[in-house]
Amino acid sequence: NLRWTSEAKTKLKNIPFFARSQAKARIEQLARQAEQDIVTPELVEQARLEFG
């Protein structure tokens, strides 16, 4: 299971509600691909840039 830093959680809250669950799934996918067990603000930002 993935842990989220408080900064990453804050960044996730800045994503519009309607896109948040999809973004969260993508962020967690990116973390797993990078073999990380902690979601960082950088991963959230990477996903945000993908979504535009």
Rank of each mutant, 00 (worst) to 15 (best):
1 N>I: 13
1 N>A: 13
1 N>V: 12
2 L>Q: 02
2 L>T: 03
3 R>D: 04
3 R>A: 08
4 W>A: 00
4 W>P: 00
5 T>R: 02
6 S>K: 14
7 E>Q: 09
8 A>T: 01
9 K>T: 11
9 K>Q: 10
9 K>D: 05
9 K>E: 12
9 K>C: 14
10 T>W: 11
10 T>P: 00
11 K>L: 15
11 K>F: 10
11 K>E: 07
11 K>C: 09
12 L>A: 02
12 L>C: 03
12 L>G: 01
12 L>H: 01
13 K>Q: 12
13 K>V: 05
13 K>N: 14
15 I>F: 15
15 I>N: 02
17 F>H: 12
18 F>V: 07
18 F>A: 08
19 A>S: 10
19 A>M: 15
20 R>S: 02
21 S>Y: 09
21 S>R: 14
21 S>N: 10
21 S>C: 13
22 Q>T: 11
22 Q>D: 07
22 Q>R: 14
22 Q>L: 14
23 A>E: 03
23 A>N: 02
24 K>W: 04
24 K>T: 05
24 K>H: 05
25 A>Q: 11
25 A>K: 14
26 R>A: 06
27 I>A: 15
27 I>R: 01
27 I>M: 02
27 I>T: 06
28 E>A: 04
28 E>N: 03
28 E>K: 03
28 E>Y: 03
29 Q>I: 08
29 Q>S: 08
30 L>A: 04
30 L>M: 10
31 A>F: 01
31 A>E: 00
31 A>G: 02
31 A>S: 03
31 A>Y: 01
32 R>M: 09
32 R>V: 08
33 Q>C: 08
33 Q>M: 13
33 Q>R: 11
34 A>W: 13
34 A>S: 11
35 E>W: 08
35 E>T: 06
35 E>Y: 12
35 E>K: 15
36 Q>Y: 10
36 Q>A: 10
36 Q>I: 14
36 Q>S: 12
37 D>L: 12
37 D>A: 10
37 D>S: 13
37 D>R: 10
37 D>K: 11
38 I>P: 07
38 I>G: 02
38 I>R: 05
38 I>H: 07
38 I>Y: 09
38 I>M: 08
39 V>M: 01
39 V>E: 00
39 V>P: 01
40 T>C: 03
40 T>F: 04
40 T>I: 03
40 T>G: 05
40 T>S: 05
41 P>K: 09
41 P>D: 06
41 P>A: 15
42 E>I: 05
42 E>W: 07
43 L>D: 02
43 L>N: 03
43 L>G: 01
43 L>F: 10
43 L>S: 02
44 V>W: 03
45 E>P: 01
45 E>W: 06
45 E>F: 05
45 E>V: 06
46 Q>R: 12
46 Q>S: 07
46 Q>H: 07
46 Q>A: 09
46 Q>F: 09
46 Q>P: 01
47 A>Q: 03
47 A>S: 05
48 R>I: 15
49 L>E: 08
49 L>K: 12
50 E>S: 09
50 E>Q: 10
51 F>K: 05
51 F>A: 06
51 F>R: 05
51 F>L: 11
52 G>P: 10
52 G>M: 15
